[in-house]
């Protein structure tokens, strides 16, 4: 997701002083932010693991859904703790926790990014429409916003999943449904102030259509809040997805999912005997959201260094 286009145009003569666009400046600030770089590295590892999950598991000879009733459980039928054979232990059905974690990364990250992408796209379009056209369009979208924001997210999400049935697609759409509103509100606010600027009038006097003004003139001015909000929303959606799974309304079994793994462990107080069943999925979940949040902070500071400037005063 490195959306930093090269600022130096290919045709720019080498002799002139390099004019640093806002992107180049942001990239320079970001490079100096060690915490954000570490977060980015952690995230890169997690994403690579998610992408190459099948390869990793076949290399280790583990199958996330293979229920090893013979060697995966102890004599009392209880899960095994971490060992050489099962690095992070096994679960109640004798499945390898590490293999499930690796596959769970796919679900968690994939759903987080996909749902955020949809939410941001919808939010941007509706925010643009509301802010640009104002009037009745604005009133309708604003009320829609109010309704979505007035609903208790977890409860309503659970309810929606219950109504539409458990499937990855439903989960993605439900998460998107509850997160577009804030994006739309941010975009709308920005557009309302941007549309009074003279360059919009200039575009109109050139005969630009409304669509062109929205997507060619306004959208480039919204890229920074969009990127910032995107990076901060992904961890929120990862967590909400885990919460749904925890409440038993996530991706249907037996697909490995971090929230679902914790939920399984909670059932019947199993985790009191097998701490690793909560500890590892919980740890990975926190690590992922922490990495995303740190990275999001870093991106925000790099793109919008207002707070930093305030500090230097």
């Amino acid at each position: 997701m490195s959306a930093t286009p090269a600022t130096a145009p290919p045709t720019a003569p080498k002799t002139t002083i390099v004019a640093r666009g806002p992107w180049a400046l942001a990239w320079r600030r970001f490079r100096k932010d060690k915490v954000a770089l570490i977060a980015a590295a952690v995230m890169a590892v997690i994403i690579l693991v998610a992408i190459f999950a099948p390869l990793i598991n076949s290399a280790l000879g583990q199958d996330p859904n293979y229920q090893d009733q013979v060697n995966g459980l102890d004599v009392n039928g209880l899960p095994l703790g971490p060992s050489g054979a099962h690095w992070l232990g096994t679960d109640a059905l004798g499945r390898d926790v590490f293999a499930r974690l690796v596959y769970g990364a796919r679900i968690s990250i994939g759903i987080g990014i996909l749902s955020t992408g949809i939410a941001v796209a919808v939010g941007v379009v509706l925010g643009l429409l509301a802010g640009y056209f104002r009037g009745i369009v604005d009133v309708i979208i604003a009320r829609l916003l109010d309704v979505v924001l007035a609903l208790p997210v977890v409860l309503a999400a659970v309810a929606l999943v219950a109504v539409f049935g458990q499937s990855p697609l439903v989960t993605v759409l439900v998460l998107a449904f509850f997160s577009w509103a804030t994006m739309a509100r941010i975009v709308r606010g920005q557009v309302i102030s941007l549309r009074e600027r003279e360059f919009i009038e200039a575009a109109r006097s050139l005969g630009a259509s409304s669509t062109r003004i929205m997507f060619v003139e306004l959208l480039p001015n919204l890229v920074m809040p969009i990127i910032i909000y995107f990076s901060l929303l992904v961890p929120v959606n990862i967590v909400t997805n885990a919460v749904l799974a925890f409440l038993g309304l996530g991706i249907p079994v037996p697909t490995a999912d971090w929230g679902g793994m914790i939920s399984d462990a909670e059932a019947g107080g199993l985790y009191q005997q097998a701490w690793w069943l909560v500890f590892f999925p919980g740890g990975v979940l926190v690590l992922t959201t922490l990495a995303f949040n740190l990275l999001g902070d870093g991106i925000r500071d790099a793109l919008d260094p207002r707070i930093e400037r305030l500090l230097r005063k």
Binding site: V243, V278, G282, L285, V286, N293
Partner: peptide, 11 residues
């Protein structure tokens, strides 16, 4: 901030 409620609560 990054910790889901159910993870912290379980811990």
């Amino acid at each position: 901030y990054s910790m889901p409620t159910f993870v912290l609560g379980s811990m």
